[in-house]
Design a protein around this nucleic acid. Structure first.
Length: 273
DNA sequence: TGCCAGGCCGAAA
DNA sequence: TTTCGGCATGGC
């Protein structure tokens, strides 16, 4: 049966390509018709552009979930105006027009970015896909079969050898150690969310296999901390390839989004090659 | 065939 | 505090 389609927002507010393909998420599959199909929690969706609008079909009619997932109550045009402080940022924002910072499931985001370290996007997607197919629950949308991301308790109970099939190498202990920390309550997402970003970052980095990069990605994409820092790391990286001066201190609480724009711009324009 | 990937760890300087 | 080799695997 065809799911009812629901209007989500204007296509100016959300670019599917820039949002799904900028490297912040790994579970959206592009169809031949240009639509994307994906899953978050037990919510599956097909999302597509039509006549200047973004529409969504869901497996359960829960459009509120996706409203939050796509951060639709936040005024990104206002943020972009504030971030547009020089030519570099103007170009970075233009390049990533329509990127929205997704509010992903916390455990899935943490685990995914542990897997992402020193890895390429197709392989990251492959490892996550294998993990979900083996331990996740089947969820269907239309005739597409998807799998939920296994929860931390499930992974915590496994031994290192049982994830050999992932072919994830040295990341396997990191995945299982993180799952055990989360499942046991040693690592509490609520506390990390409520604490300030700097403290949360320190706590995360005490965990085996979580360094500054994984911590920042989790803070931004898992906990929605838009001030996830240090954005200056990315600015310095970007500045190696760009002559313009950039005052990152002005980025304030939107530094995280700036980080994403910068990373996407630098990476996709290949100026770091 | 070889380089490199949205890094992290631990030892050495 | 910074630097650097090693790590496990496969995409391109």
């Amino acid at each position: 049966m065809e799911e009812k389609r629901i209007y989500l927002c204007s296509s100016k507010e959300l670019s599917l390509k820039n949002t799904f393909e900028c490297g912040q998420c790994f579970r959206w599959i592009k169809g031949k018709d240009g639509s994307y199909t994906g899953i978050s929690g037990e919510n599956a969706a097909r999302i597509f552009e039509h006549d200047g609008g973004i529409y969504i079909q869901t497996n359960n009619g829960n459009s509120e979930y996706w409203h939050e997932y796509f951060d639709l109550s936040r005024d990104y045009s206002k943020i972009n105006r504030e971030l547009c402080i020089d030519d570099f940022m103007r170009r970075a924002i233009a390049f990533g027009a329509g990127i929205r910072i997704l509010k992903q499931d916390e455990w899935e985001a943490l685990c995914s970015f542990i897997i992402s370290q020193c890895n390429n996007i197709p392989r990251i997607k492959g490892i996550i896909s294998k993990l979900c197919e083996r331990y996740g629950k089947e969820v269907c949308i239309g005739d597409t079969k998807l799998y939920t991301f296994p929860n931390s308790q499930q992974i915590a109970e496994l031994d290192y050898g049982s994830l050999e099939f992932l072919r994830a190498g040295y990341r396997v202990p990191y995945i299982i150690d993180a799952a055990r920390a989360v499942a046991s309550g040693m690592l509490l997402f609520e506390e990390l969310r409520d604490d300030n970003t700097a403290n949360s970052r320190k706590v995360l980095m005490k965990q085996n296999g979580i360094g500054p990069k994984v911590a920042d990605c989790f803070l931004l994409f898992g906990l929605g901390k838009l001030d996830a820092f240090p954005v200056d790391t990315w600015i310095k990286k970007a500045q190696k390839f760009y002559d313009g001066a950039l005052n990152y201190q002005k980025f304030g609480r939107y530094a995280g989004i700036a980080q994403q724009y910068i990373f996407y711009y630098v990476k996709e324009t290949q100026i770091n090659k």
